[in-house]
């Protein structure tokens, strides 16, 4: 076999190139890994808050005392603040609820619960709906 007098890269060139590539890769990977999906836990907390508001509304509807229109938070006040984001600063939830008639049946009500929260400068929200039966009080 004929061996040509070829000149390749020097070992040092290869090592220096590998080092530069590794440093760039480390900086890039470090940045990517620090982005954590903390919002998943906050979304879960918000879904359960919406369920809490719907349960309280159902209870009032069963007693015939659920008003139509916009209603305030009916659950436990402490539940509106959470540290589930992993940050030192708490995240506060804002719950907006609307009750309206559903179809022509006055006993059926549609509850729409919107839970909003803010992380840094970003705003997030979830919306939940439920049709419930209200007890009609006799005059």
């Amino acid at each position: 076999m004929k061996i040509l007098n070829e000149r390749g890269f020097m070992l040092l060139q290869v090592v220096f190139l590998a080092m530069i590539t590794s440093i760039v890769a480390m900086i890039f990977l470090n940045g990517v890994m620090q982005v954590k999906n903390r919002n998943a836990t906050l979304r879960l907390t918000a879904i359960h808050l919406a369920n809490e508001q719907i349960a309280e509304s159902e209870s009032r509807a069963a007693q015939g005392i659920l008003p139509d229109g916009s209603i305030s938070w009916l659950g436990v006040d402490d539940d509106l603040t959470t540290y589930n984001s992993g940050a030192k600063e708490p995240v506060k939830f804002d719950v907006k609820t609307n009750v309206e008639n559903f179809s022509d049946n006055v006993a059926l009500k549609k509850i729409t619960v919107k839970v909003e929260w803010k992380v840094g400068e970003e705003n997030f929200q979830i919306e939940s709906e439920k049709i419930i039966r209200e007890k009609i009080l006799q005059p």
Partner: peptide, 20 residues
């Protein structure tokens, strides 16, 4: 209301809800 933590990460989570 449930509050749990993980012994590996020391992260904790607290979630509450209500049911009718």
């Amino acid at each position: 209301a449930v509050e749990m933590h993980d012994n590996i990460t020391r992260q904790s989570v607290k979630i509450s809800t209500s049911v009718f």
